[in-house]
Design a protein around this nucleic acid. Sequence first.
DNA 1: CAGATTTCATTGGACATCAAATGATATCGG
DNA 2: CCGATATCATTTGATGTCCAATGAAATCTG
Lengths: 168, 168
Amino acid sequence: MHPVPLGFDPIAEARRNWARHGWGAPDAMVAATSIARAHQVVLAQIDAALAPFGLTFSRFEALALLHFSRLGALPMGKVGARLQVHPASVTNTVTRLERDGLVRRIPGDADRRLVLAEITPEGRRVVKEASAALAAAEFGLAGVGGGELAGIADALAAVRREAGDLTP
Amino acid sequence: MHPVPLGFDPIAEARRNWARHGWGAPDAMVAATSIARAHQVVLAQIDAALAPFGLTFSRFEALALLHFSRLGALPMGKVGARLQVHPASVTNTVTRLERDGLVRRIPGDADRRLVLAEITPEGRRVVKEASAALAAAEFGLAGVGGGELAGIADALAAVRREAGDLTP
DNA sequence: CAGATTTCATTGGACATCAAATGATATCGG
DNA sequence: CCGATATCATTTGATGTCCAATGAAATCTG
């Protein structure tokens, strides 16, 4: 997509322009833009690593969650809560996983409003291979040192804290 | 979207599960997942701050880039290179900005393959107001301290370095 | 100079995400 | 017990992103 590097840092350039026009909160602008760019870069590599398995990161996350669960099955709502995505996104994700035979929808027994997503044996096989591929690709963060990885998680904890993700 | 907090950190939980199954690169997994979550949180707040202006972050970025440019106009390709997005995304973004009268398409004079996106007076008016709103909302990073903002940018610089964004 | 190659923007298809509305089911209250 | 309210999943529609293919125009090459 970007065969030709720009030769300069687009975010640093944005900061200069931002300051030149006297616009506010330049540090926040740089931090937010850095997050967006890092997300774009990492997700592209993750999806590339998962493509051979017919998975996207979204689908992999859902599949891994089910694989980790006690019964290999969770209600749609639980999946959304754990992955922190919109209910409609869960419906979409599970539908595609089901299409590929990695997941099955089963009706809730006690509460008939519930729909459970259950991972299939094929799903378990695929998620294991995919996790290995993801680990091999270091989640798109190859080249980033171990200490730097911890630094990223720590720095972003402040953002997640604001969002209420942390237990404080 | 998530009125009810989970009561625990989903990423910390993911790390435990990941380790329990002996899967690789847990630090990278945590870092990548943290980036994805931070992106989701920040972008949601940014888009909320921009909604009153009929803008999304993508459209705002394009509009600001044109506003900063010397002539208030840039070829589509340049916009994509600077914002680091796919050409098809630029086409989409500019089409919507044009629909709202914030941008105009003008044909390239020298090279007739080029299409220039030019910001309109209305576009300049809107982008200024929007930038103020964005600054007021601190880019969705209100509550994150100044030092922490710099820490985020610094930590993510390692990722952007790998992607070739930095000049070194 | 003419044909081949490259560059540029657009189009169409696929995927992910969210918001709002809908239908089905469960629970609460009188 | 029955009606009102709440919960759950899905559907529909809008956005944004990418890839692959296409057509138009410029440039390179023999």
